[in-house]
Amino acid sequence: MDATAPQDRDAADLVVLLDDDGVPTGTAPRAEVHTTDTPLHLAFSCHVTDGAGRLLLTRRALGKRAWPGVWTNAFCGHPRPGEDPVDAVHRYAEHELGLVLDHLEPMLPDFRYRAVDASGVVEHEVCPVWLARATAAPQLNPDEAVESRWVTPRELRTTAEVAPWALSPWLVMQLEQLPVGASALDAVGDHV
């Protein structure tokens, strides 16, 4: 059975809650976990490149609870309890962007952050960061993303330096943790 079939999606749409050491402590419904007092939970973030070495940015749907309309990396998501992280990345790539990924590698396996948006909604995640390569152009799910754009790694870094407020805070923090000249983002064609 398809893991994203509608009858399964609601029952299985849980996030994994974590203690301060990153150890699972339980679950919570994804639709209810993001509030002004969001508990630490497991997520992931994925950067997607094309054959030309460009990176995909997406603009979050305007109906999103947190950071609506903000430009960010290709996509983010939450592994379900017991779900292999690689499977979760592939599931979200297909659901949010209609993408099939033909390569996937970890970039920041220990990335963790907490950020508060303008409405007070908190993101508080242990959020491993992945780099993937797309095999086709994205087909945006309008519930997830309203726009997309391919940019060079240099363009992305410049935007983060001069206008960090225009990007999601997790994207800016990820770029700060990837050393310039030594990261997969700066040599994306060599890594995927």
Rank of each mutant, 00 (worst) to 15 (best):
E147P: 00
T152E: 04
R112E: 12
D186H: 15
D10F: 12
R91D: 00
W150S: 03
F44T: 09
L171Q: 03
V48S: 05
E123W: 13
A137N: 08
E83V: 12
A3N: 10
W130S: 08
E83P: 13
P81C: 11
L55W: 05
P164E: 08
R133G: 05
L140T: 02
H95T: 05
T72K: 06
V70G: 05
A12Q: 14
P179G: 08
A74N: 06
A160H: 08
T49V: 00
D102L: 03
S119A: 15
D13N: 14
F75G: 04
A61Y: 01
H124P: 09
A31G: 01
C76S: 14
V172T: 03
A93P: 09
F75I: 01
A160M: 07
L104A: 13
A43G: 15
L99T: 04
L42Y: 14
H47M: 02
P109I: 09
T135G: 03
L140I: 03
E125Q: 15
A187M: 10
L178F: 05
G120W: 08
P169D: 11
V146L: 06
T38H: 03
A160P: 06
D50V: 02
D8V: 06
A163F: 03
G22E: 09
A11R: 14
L167A: 04
M173N: 05
T35L: 07
S168L: 08
L156T: 12
L104I: 12
T152Q: 07
M1F: 08
D8M: 05
R54E: 01
E147D: 07
H103S: 15
A163T: 10
L40C: 08
W165K: 02
L131W: 14
G53L: 01
A31R: 00
V86Y: 14
L17S: 11
A136P: 06
R54A: 00
P6L: 00
P29A: 07
D20M: 04
A11P: 04
P68F: 11
V129A: 04
R30Q: 14
G26W: 10
T36N: 11
G189K: 08
D8T: 08
A52E: 05
L55P: 05
A160L: 05
A115G: 08
R157G: 07
D117L: 02
D102F: 14
D190H: 10
H34N: 09
L175Q: 05
E83A: 13
A115R: 11
V100E: 09
V192N: 06
W130Y: 15
T36Y: 06
H124K: 07
E105H: 13
A118G: 06
R157P: 12
P179Y: 11
T135F: 01
L156Y: 02
F75K: 09
A66S: 12
R59A: 11
E176C: 13
S45C: 13
L18E: 05
L42N: 08
P142C: 02
V151A: 04
A182C: 15
F44M: 06
L131G: 14
V23Y: 11
H191K: 01
A137C: 10
A166R: 07
A136K: 09
E123G: 03
W150Q: 00
E144N: 01
H103Y: 06
